[in-house]
């Protein structure tokens, strides 16, 4: 508990990262005691931290990079898979049908509103799930919010900047871009659920 609090106060906020560091430090201290260091635990720990704290904090940053890399890899793998391509084609085709069916102004509203509303819905579902499954403060689970936020900002920027510039010629390109964003959003949501399940099994059931 003492080491855990120390690491938490040293800005190692994610439980899974802290857990691994805590095990490493505890194992090292136990080994030192086993090898004849008869000083109080606190002094052995202090010695260890004086020597290794900077390295541990840098490891924390590296861990976050690995978490981002893991999410990006899962996302692109899913996007290039058959089901990712199917989702994209279905979304693109649905928008294209709506383009032919509704008048231009109504279609334009649908094209921009649907993904933004979807991303808000997914965002809310994500935060509720974090709370109810007690998965907040786990590195990969929290970092998955980052691409969510990026996609949301891309969608709102498209809405604010490009919407007024679209004409009949560029509408298909815009449908493709928005379909891609919506596909990424859906795949990201699927990845989040799968990661949450993995973390639930891996960590929270043991605590």
């Amino acid at each position: 508990m003492f080491i855990d609090n120390y690491l938490d106060n040293s800005d190692i906020i994610y439980k899974d990262i802290r857990m691994e560091m805590l095990d490493h430090i505890s194992s090292e201290i136990e080994d030192r005691i086993k090898n004849g260091d008869d000083r109080d635990f606190y002094y052995i720990f202090k010695d260890y931290m004086v020597k290794n704290k900077a390295r541990l904090l840098s490891d924390n940053k590296q861990f976050l990079k690995s978490a981002d890399r893991k999410i990006a890899k899962l996302l692109f793998k899913d996007l290039l898979s058959i089901h990712g391509l199917v989702v994209f084609v279905v979304i693109f085709y649905s928008f294209y049908m709506a383009f032919n069916y509704y008048n231009y102004e109504l279609f334009e509203t649908i094209l921009f509103a649907v993904p933004i509303i979807t991303s808000i819905f997914f965002g809310l579902a994500y935060f509720i799930a974090l709370k109810s499954y007690k998965l907040n403060r786990y590195s990969v689970i929290e970092r998955v919010a980052f691409p969510f936020i990026i996609i949301f900002h891309v969608l709102t920027s498209l809405n604010n900047i490009l919407k007024p510039l679209i004409d009949g010629n560029s509408i298909l390109i815009m449908i493709a871009i928005i379909s891609l964003c919506l596909t990424l959003l859906i795949l990201l949501f699927k990845i989040t659920i799968s990661l949450a399940k993995t973390y639930q099994i891996r960590f929270t059931n043991l605590v």
Binding site: D59, K65, S66
Partner: peptide, 17 residues
């Protein structure tokens, strides 16, 4: 092997599957 080298490597290998 220091923890500063080991854990980033382990996490990278994990991220790579």
């Amino acid at each position: 092997i220091t923890e500063g080298a080991l854990y980033p490597a382990l996490h990278k290998l994990e991220a790579e599957g």
